[in-house]
Write a protein that binds this DNA or RNA. Structure first.
Lengths: 344, 344
DNA sequence: AAGAAAAATGTCAACGCTGACATAAACCGG
DNA sequence: CCGGTTTATGTCAGCGTTGACATTTTTCTT
């Protein structure tokens, strides 16, 4: 082990292949062979080298190794909007799982849902030479990744598709999910059904809204605008506005929330004001089962896993048409969505 | 830009400083100067270089840069037990935030709460040359990190202290937190107070149990064992056992949960069996406010942030006594913990 | 036991980058 | 317009590793 530049021994530097070789009386290359598990090393040499490596606490330097091998790492970048959203971290859990099975690791980076910071964050990841890029797009354009894609870096978009970029994607069965929920409310006798959605990605928002309208149209209800409570880009929907909607003459007898933020708002509005209304949320949440809340659920971990799988497949097969996976949703009936409409 | 080894143009390789220099008619070193923002470059050269870099989509190779600079990266490893536990993820969010402010990134690795995989996961991170290591220890011994610490890699333990290793740590105010909760239950007239805790780290478990006993001892209640429901290493506490405890002659009139898993079990037990009992949980959760559940809460994001701060401080000041930070907890009164004891 | 094949080990260069140092070009006062 | 200073640019080596290739040592063959 070499001595630090200052000449003191207080801070020692890390052992290299050469250091180990020196101690074991062999060349760095032979140590490399031992570390890599080559068979062309005599047993006695191997033993000596391994002993020396242990003594010096040798740890191979992946930076150097990766540089030597064309600067491909075994890390994958995951660009997330808001880290505190439980949806994303379950996705991250799935990604981590899948990657770990392939000996890869995940670098997490957050954009804080700021479209302007997306490119910068992605750039930082790319200078780290991540092997693939998984992302929840927040900007309105991902064309800046086109060059990178051509260089062979798989890009997989999560929850919403990429815009102006050919990329694989994994999204939820948004439209079918809300449609199923609305049909359940219809089956419970409701016709005046409200849709509450805080913004959370234009794409999911629109898809879910479309599913809601689909199902109501099936029973001849087309003028749904009066029951739609859609938050704008910046702010979510307030408890008050939910209250007002419910109190309106001819207001909804049932509510469907378009995402977990909207669910929380509705639940609080209903709870804090002792209102009784049929309700189905989108996104399952902790302890939902203990609250009788019916939800449109799906497996976020599976979503992450599939995304990671797509990326890994792309590594070995960089060309080919983009794949789009839809993760199924299903309605979990816990009571709140089964309350019959008044007068039934 | 150079052509790939196969001689085809279909897969092009990444541009290097030399490639950019060739196009701009300068040396690689001058390109490097431009990229690093050196002032000693003439304006005309800078313009030409930047144009060339843009043309070739040049992106500096951090692997090479870091290798050159002694193999120190700007990534920090975070070793987590179970990624799906929202507690950890909020911590991760805090870490990410703090690191981003210092231009660093986080690599997430999970041990799946398996003590045997901890060292392996840590090892993998270290070969990546992470700048610092943040971890939720799950193994019973972290002495294997001693050598790394001496090499100057900051190690910060989260939620529980390291064992057999001198390392900084950030933990919760566990003992004081449960004590405060129990005192609140006592104030509501309870004396027979139960403690339910699924295992979740020996350390936190014991600290919280101690706080519970502390507070009861203050009012002369010492024989608490009959009301303690402690899950073993492997399995949590079941709803049934909570039910049985409550149904016991002389059983508790109030319950305190020792962590979020135990909270969930108690909430389900109480909910599913229509039992009325005063209850306080440890760890806040989504929509707890909409459920009237009183909890001992704290700021997990802050916990992560402080941990990252510690690591960053250690980088510039590697020696010195280890620091131990305790994140305060506070009781949030929402109703469930304020129910008076029967007969009051 | 000599020659050939196989096994073990070594030498060297390069991956992309940037400090240390060297050189070249521009500028400046007298 | 010369020595000297500043500014701009270039050369080189080396970070730690490992392929390609070379060399040495051992083993096998006849």
């Amino acid at each position: 082990m070499s001595v630090s530049a200052t000449g003191t021994l207080s801070t020692q530097s890390r052992a290299t292949l050469a250091d180990v070789g020196r101690l074991a009386g062999v060349s760095a290359k032979t140590v490399s062979r031992v570390v890599l598990g080559s068979t062309n090393v005599s047993d006695s040499t191997r033993d000596r080298v391994m002993a020396a490596a242990r003594t010096l606490r040798f740890r191979p330097n992946h930076l150097a190794r990766n540089l030597r091998h064309g600067s491909v790492t075994n890390t994958v970048g995951f660009v997330i909007g808001d880290l505190r959203n439980p949806f994303y971290f379950n996705v991250a859990a799935g990604i981590e799982r899948e990657l770990a099975g392939h000996g890869m690791m995940m670098i997490l980076a957050a954009t804080d849902d700021d479209p302007n910071s997306e490119a910068r964050v992605v750039e930082t990841l790319l200078t780290q030479r991540v092997r693939a890029l998984l992302m929840v797009p927040v900007a309105e354009d991902q064309s800046y990744l086109e060059g990178e894609r051509q260089l062979g870096t798989p890009v997989v978009c999560i929850d919403r598709p990429a815009q102006n970029l050919i990329a694989d994607s994994v999204v939820l069965e948004n439209r079918g999910g809300t449609a199923e929920a609305v049909r359940a409310l219809i089956a419970a006798g409701h016709r005046r059904i409200g849709f509450v959605c805080s913004p959370g990605g234009l794409f999911t928002h629109q898809q879910r809204l479309a599913g809601y309208r689909d199902a109501l149209r099936e029973v001849g209800v087309t003028d749904t605008a009066q029951w739609e409570l859609l938050g704008d880009e910046r702010n979510g929907v307030s408890e008050d506005s939910v209250q007002r909607l419910l109190a309106t003459e001819g207001g909804p007898t049932a509510l469907l929330a378009g995402n977990n933020r909207a669910s929380a708002t509705v639940i609080r509005a209903v709870h804090n004001h002792f209102t009784e209304v049929a309700f189905i949320g989108f996104d399952d949440f902790e302890l939902a089962d203990a609250s009788d809340i019916s939800v449109v659920a799906y497996d976020p971990v599976e979503l992450g896993r599939r995304a990671a799988q797509l990326a890994i497949q792309r590594l070995s097969e960089p060309l080919g048409l983009p794949r789009h996976i839809e993760i199924p949703t299903h309605l979990i009936r816990r009571g709140s969505g089964e309350r019959a409409a008044p007068g039934i």
